Simulated assay, not measured.
Amino acid sequence: MSPQIPHPARVLVEGTRRAVRTARNRRSPGASRVPSQLTDITPAWLATALGKPVGSIRAITVLDSHSGTAARARIGVDADDDSIPDRLFVKLPPSDYPQHVLLDLFGLAEKEVLAYRALGEDPPVRIPRCHAAESDPRRSRFALVLEDLTATARFRTVVDTVSRAEAEAVVDAMADLHSVFWNSDRFAGDLAPLAHRPAFETHLGTMIRRLLLRNIKGHTADMIPEAVARACRIFYLRSAEMDTLWASLPQTLLHGDPHLGNLFFEDDGPGFLDWQIASAGAGIRDVAYFLTASVDPALLRTIERALVQRYVDRLAAAGIAVDGARWWTLYRAATTDWFLAAVCTAEAGARMQPLEVSREGVRRAVAAVEAHDSFRVLTALVDGR
């Protein structure tokens, strides 16, 4: 396939081809050494994935499991090696076929596997320890074996909110993450797949935005002022110019989807889950996304400027100088990222999130873009003003 896809028909053809490939691979569970479902997680496979001798794990017990954008399970492990944890968490391709197709269309599994490998044994932020990360894109397979956080971590959802102290801790962690990967040479090397989206993904994303945003009519349509609904069409009318804007800024490793449902908290601070949207990008986008999605608007309006400055100051302490006033303007524009995510999720209905969750997400998104006149600011930046 050529690097450029000039017509929507070619996007649809390629998307159909990938959907058929996914269906074919789901019917051939033994076609890859990477598991396709929970029953493929055998003692022998797990021992090999952990770098242990076959036979060192006697038995595996599924403690609980569910499937959404990925299949997830907690497993108990009976092993004769004390270095093997007796509880682990595994992620695999989703059981739902449409979710599996979505995963494949946007390379979400490969992004997450690559992110965990990039973060390594000594990550700059708290993440679940990654014991194994395997991927077979040709066969639509991936497997992550992670630390089970159940005993130590506290989890929340989008309807919850964080305190000022918690927001400060997350912003600090983001600055620590971003400073390590700031303009890293690795984005031209092993992390190149996170820095360069295939043309197919770019064009498909624009088509989906057009489909969902051209006429917002889902269960949150009543929450979105008409002027905001018109302004958000920039996401598909000028998507290429927006990409150029964000790519012109210093690039670092972004989590990409840091709302409360993808974070956890322990006594010593926050951690980050679910790296499926990981990419190279402008760090302020992670900050704006997290704060807009995760702090109640009434509190956020009183603390967000100080939090952006806190992020800038922490970068400076790591030897990275950025202009605080400029980064505040970029923050105001970047609040639109959560608007895009929240509205598109709501337009997809209960298949993606419970309705009360997506309504709260849209409420916070609208509050932010109205408070900051974000679409006007974004348009001015895209225009070079």
Score class of each variant (00 low, 15 high):
140 S>F: 06
65 S>K: 06
94 P>F: 01
69 T>W: 07
67 S>H: 12
73 A>Y: 07
135 S>R: 00
104 D>V: 12
142 F>L: 11
139 R>G: 05
80 D>L: 13
128 P>S: 14
84 I>R: 13
75 I>G: 01
107 G>K: 00
123 P>N: 11
78 D>R: 15
110 E>H: 11
104 D>L: 00
132 A>I: 05
69 T>S: 14
85 P>T: 10
139 R>D: 13
141 R>V: 03
132 A>Y: 08
64 D>H: 12
101 V>D: 03
95 S>L: 15
143 A>L: 01
86 D>A: 02
76 G>D: 04
88 L>V: 08
134 E>I: 03
109 A>D: 14
110 E>K: 05
113 V>W: 07
75 I>L: 15
64 D>G: 08
108 L>T: 05
62 V>W: 00
98 P>W: 07
67 S>V: 11
74 R>T: 07
93 P>H: 09
128 P>R: 13
123 P>G: 11
90 V>G: 01
107 G>E: 12
144 L>S: 10
126 R>S: 13
116 Y>R: 01
66 H>A: 06
134 E>M: 12
132 A>W: 07
144 L>K: 09
144 L>G: 05
107 G>W: 01
111 K>M: 03
129 R>I: 00
101 V>G: 01
131 H>Y: 15
108 L>S: 07
76 G>C: 02
62 V>C: 06
89 F>S: 02
79 A>P: 00
76 G>M: 05
122 D>I: 04
120 G>C: 09
141 R>N: 05
80 D>F: 09
101 V>P: 01
137 P>K: 13
115 A>S: 09
125 V>P: 03
128 P>F: 14
123 P>Y: 11
82 D>N: 12
117 R>C: 04
104 D>G: 01
64 D>T: 12
87 R>C: 06
144 L>T: 05
135 S>K: 00
105 L>Y: 02
138 R>H: 11
141 R>E: 04
68 G>C: 04
70 A>N: 14
124 P>M: 10
110 E>R: 13
140 S>H: 10
77 V>F: 02
76 G>S: 03
86 D>I: 00
98 P>H: 09
